[in-house]
């Protein structure tokens, strides 16, 4: 029951989508599908519903870059937890990119994407805005095959 106090439905949705992905890597389709079912349930029944506010988003992302991820780095170093350190190193860089994209978007709006495609690295979340898929992820070094092209329409 401890976990339910720590985690709301939004967090549970991601816990289970992560487990579904790792089951898929184990080539265990049956388990992966059921984990996905749970993730979808928590996603659909999530209570949080806030609209898109770019300034609020920039402020939250900035705090991740300047204090929340550095806190993970600090504790990761003390505990010699290389996994947490890896998560903080990648996450801080990806969040800094988020901040940069959001700041540029405020000025340029949709022009930011003109003549470009948007790609997301499936391994670390890095967002690339470029005509072609990156050959290798600059943050986690995953190959181009790990990038997903984000479509303009749903």
């Amino acid at each position: 029951m401890k976990e339910q106090k720590q985690y709301g439905y939004d967090e549970l949705a991601l816990v289970f989508s992560n487990l579904a992905k790792s089951a898929e890597k184990q080539i265990n389709a049956e388990v992966s599908k059921k984990l996905d079912t749970l993730s979808t349930f928590f996603k659909k029944n999530s209570s949080k519903e806030t609209g898109f506010d770019i300034d609020e988003l920039v402020s939250s992302v900035s705090q991740d870059v300047s204090s929340r991820y550095p806190e993970v780095e600090k504790e990761g170093k003390i505990s010699e937890d290389r996994g947490a350190l890896r998560c903080a190193t990648w996450g801080k860089k990806v969040s800094a990119i988020h901040k940069s994209i959001l700041t540029r978007y405020k000025n340029q709006k949709e022009q930011l994407f003109e003549g470009k495609e948007v790609w997301v690295c499936e391994a670390c979340g890095f967002i690339a805005i470029s005509p072609q898929v990156p050959a290798v992820c600059p943050i986690c070094k995953a190959p181009s095959s790990r990038f997903t092209k984000i479509r303009k329409e749903n």
Partner: peptide, 27 residues
């Protein structure tokens, strides 16, 4: 939650990326 509605290319990209960052915390 702020980009959940995914009304633009920017929001869709952030949604996808933030899910990966959140999943990494879970892992």
């Amino acid at each position: 939650a702020m980009v959940r509605q995914q009304q633009s290319l920017l929001e869709r990209a952030l949604y996808h990326s933030l899910q990966i960052l959140g999943e990494d915390c879970a892992r």
